[in-house]
């Protein structure tokens, strides 16, 4: 298992890189990206996912399907850092000479799907996992969902289908940051108990602190040796805007990047203070 200390430092670096990329563009869902940074760090740096930036289309690679497409700034940051494309692309984020914008785009090396509308990527991941079974491929399919996505009925259509078809090669992670665009989930339409909902749909359920690398690594370690026919969902409790107190847990910071100088200074200061 990769060292937790290294992963925590990596997560901080990724948060910093993502923030600067979004400040540069004046756009991007910063808080949605911050809540799932530790999850992506565990997957892409912790030895959980089998992937190779030099061969992004390798057939037996594990698939990572970002269903919460608004967190693409963090995925793009990870992919650049892992060498899927040159880091200079980050300076062109959402610019006329760049290759990606605010939401996820399949043409970017390492991105598996195009995603911006919620409730769709998860079904794609289910289809990929089923296709892998039909092809007798041994790779795993990981998919990262936002908790706000769970309001989409299509999520539950796919969840029911996945467990019925014994897709134990499928791992869903729910970024449970308790917020949607304008309010807290439990205030406007309660999602809890999420564990029971998934369990009743036939999934194996784990619940962890999604901003704790050690807990994530323990939950995701050894998946290939898992003895279960059920697909696995990890409910990862997170903080929306984790690492930057100035914008965390504030619903109206859902869809934006800091653009005025006071906010930019405050965000950088918070991130420096919360280093690793």
């Amino acid at each position: 298992m990769a060292k937790v200390n290294f992963l925590e430092k990596k997560a901080h670096q990724l948060r910093t890189d993502m923030l600067e990329m979004c400040i540069g563009a004046g756009d991007g869902h910063v808080t949605s990206s911050l809540s799932c940074t530790d999850i992506m760090t565990a997957l892409f740096y912790g030895g959980i996912m089998k992937h190779n930036p030099n061969e992004p289309d390798l057939e037996d690679r594990d698939r990572f399907i970002l269903s919460k497409g608004q967190a693409s700034p963090m995925l793009y940051t990870v992919l650049a850092d892992r060498g899927y494309f040159d880091k200079s692309e980050m300076k062109k984020f959402a610019q006329s000479d760049g290759m990606f914008g605010v939401h996820l785009q399949k043409s970017v090396p390492g991105a598996e799907i195009t995603c911006g509308s919620l409730g769709m990527g998860f079904g794609n991941a289910v289809g990929i996992a089923l296709g892998a079974k039909l092809n007798h491929d041994l790779h795993l399919t990981f998919t990262l969902l936002g908790d706000g996505e769970l309001y989409e009925g299509s999520i539950w259509e796919a969840a029911m289908f996945a467990s019925h078809n014994n897709l134990n090669n499928l791992v869903a992670i729910v970024d449970r940051n308790y917020q949607c665009a304008i309010d807290f989930t439990e205030d406007f339409l309660a999602l809890e108990s999420i564990d029971e909902k998934w369990r009743s749909f036939g999934w194996k359920v784990k619940r962890v602190n999604g901003n704790n690398i050690e807990e994530l690594m323990q939950a995701l370690y050894g998946l290939n040796a898992r003895r279960s026919n059920k697909p696995l969902v990890v409910i990862a409790d997170t903080i929306k805007g984790k690492g930057i107190d100035h914008i965390s847990c504030q619903p109206l910071w859902h869809g934006g990047a800091p653009i005025n100088i006071e906010d930019i200074v405050a965000c950088r200061k918070d991130l420096g203070k919360n280093n690793g």
């Binding site: 799907i113 079904g123 991941a125 289910v126 289809g127 892998a132 039909l134 299509s154």
Partner: peptide, 16 residues
Amino acid sequence: AEQNAISVAAGLAMKG
């Protein structure tokens, strides 16, 4: 479940 039909079909198509 028409929505899921297309989403799953897309995943299958991505697997060739």
